[in-house]
Amino acid sequence: MSLIVIFLSIALVNNLVFMKFLGICPYLGVSKKTDMAFGMGLAVTFVLTLSATMTWIINNLVLVPLNLEFTKYIAFILVIASMVQLVEMYLRKFYKALYQSFGIFLPLITTNCAILGTCLFIDLWGYNFMEAVVAGFGGGLGFTLAICIMAGIREQLELADVPRALEGAGITLVTAGILTLAFMGFSGMVR
């Protein structure tokens, strides 16, 4: 499969948020303001690309040859947690401005299921190294797209007259449902 197809597939057709229900917590939690959402999206893209690469390397060069695949989940979550720590420390030391813009989201990312989920899906789909890197990056961008669209809608929703029982999480979920319907249009595009 060509890399472009993989990229489009994971960014649009199999969008993590809409089709795989990954990263719903930040999707509902951090999507009140567009700039916050964008920061979160970038942080996720960054960490996801790195962890997809790292977990692929560890899984295929260490765990599979040693027949230790059953410890995969533990290995993955530890890799992701240390990746997040590393990125946080690195940014704080060398890129102060960048750290201030999305550093606050980094600790939240360890428990973002989009990261672990994508790494697991990459393993399940049996991607090779380049495909894994592209899928990680594409998945992150797809997440950014989803969370930014959601934030844009929610900024408008603030002004809308929502039934009182639906206020807050209710209307956000219904909106997400309608957005998902829209994204279903991409299904089957990649074959």
Binding site: L173, V174, G177
Partner: peptide, 21 residues
């Protein structure tokens, strides 16, 4: 489908909030 999941959960939350209130 995924869309149904979001919408059902949203409406369920609404019902629960309404009853609570």
């Amino acid at each position: 489908l995924p869309a149904g999941a979001f919408i059902t959960l949203g409406l369920m939350l609404a019902v629960i909030v309404h009853l609570q209130r």
